[in-house]
């Protein structure tokens, strides 16, 4: 069935390559602009799906299958994390774990996304045509720039993870040119899943702290805060009961 699907998608990559690359860039822009976490999973799936469609003619079906499987696992982790925390959120609390207010302003994020597009265009014109086909250059450069801007603008660990995945996708497109080893490719896909698992755990941790303790006046983002450290036992008590239970 998968081979049939790949056979169906292969001509699409050949005839609609411009639209697909544009779609991937638009999806990336949406990821950069939206500060919330609710839409990360579907938008990520769209972008990853486009990259896979573009690559499926160059890759063996096992490789495409492992990537597709990993992508669904990642989207599922994103979805479960966001749903769990939305369910847990007490009414009246602000959305969890926003590091600074500026990163939540959509106009600021739109400016960031515009700057990312500008960077991409400049880089493609500077380095592009000599080394790689034009469309491939566009998508690879965009994914690299998207990674940098996602990490810079990330309000939560989930956004950071989406940036890391964009970098991995850029690397995968280049690696696809060099007849990739299915086993290495599959392991790399597994690493992506572990990245998102770690990010989801950190997002949950950040949220537990944000919900239980309002940010202090001395809390800074560079780790040079002057607030006294709290013992782990105190912070464990601050977790929601369904997550930790009662310590023995």
């Amino acid at each position: 069935m998968l081979t049939d699907l790949i056979a169906l998608l292969e001509p699409l990559a050949a005839t609609h390559a411009i639209q697909l690359v544009s779609g991937a860039i638009v999806a990336g822009t949406v990821l950069l602009i939206l500060p919330g976490d609710a839409l990360i999973a579907p938008v990520f799936l769209v972008q990853r799906g486009i990259v896979l469609v573009l690559l499926c003619s160059h890759l063996p079906w096992q490789v495409v299958a492992s990537s597709a499987l990993a992508s669904f696992a990642i989207a599922l982790i994103y979805l479960i994390t966001v749903l769990r925390l939305n369910h847990r959120q007490a009414p009246g609390h602000p959305p969890a774990a926003r590091s600074t207010a500026l990163l939540n302003h959509i106009p600021f994020r739109m400016l960031g996304a515009a700057l990312a597009l500008l960077f991409t265009s400049a880089l493609v014109h500077r380095f592009g045509p000599a080394t790689l086909p034009s469309l491939m250059t566009w998508i690879v450069v965009w994914l690299l720039v998207q990674c940098a801007f996602s990490v810079l603008l990330a309000p939560t660990a989930l956004h950071t993870a989406s940036g890391i995945l964009a970098f991995a996708d850029a690397g995968r497109i280049l690696y696809a040119l060099a007849s990739p080893d299915p086993l290495l490719w599959g392991l790399w896909a597994a690493c992506d899943v572990v990245v998102v698992l770690g990010a989801a755990h950190l997002y949950t941790s950040q949220t537990a702290v944000t919900v239980s303790t309002p940010p202090g006046p001395h809390d800074t983002s560079d780790g040079t805060a002057q607030d006294p450290p709290r013992p782990p036992s105190e912070s464990l008590e601050s977790l929601p009961s369904e997550d930790t239970g009662t310590p023995e």
Binding site: A97, S99, V151, A157, T160, A161, G163, I164, V195, G198, A199, L202, T204, S205, Q206, A208, V209, T210, P215, D219, S221, G223, A225, P229, R230, P232, S235, L236, S238, L239
Partner: peptide, 16 residues
């Protein structure tokens, strides 16, 4: 652990 926002931020940077 959710010991503090710093720990989660540090681990997120490490993740990158």
């Amino acid at each position: 652990l959710p010991a503090s926002p710093s720990a989660a931020r540090g681990a997120t940077r490490y993740l990158i």
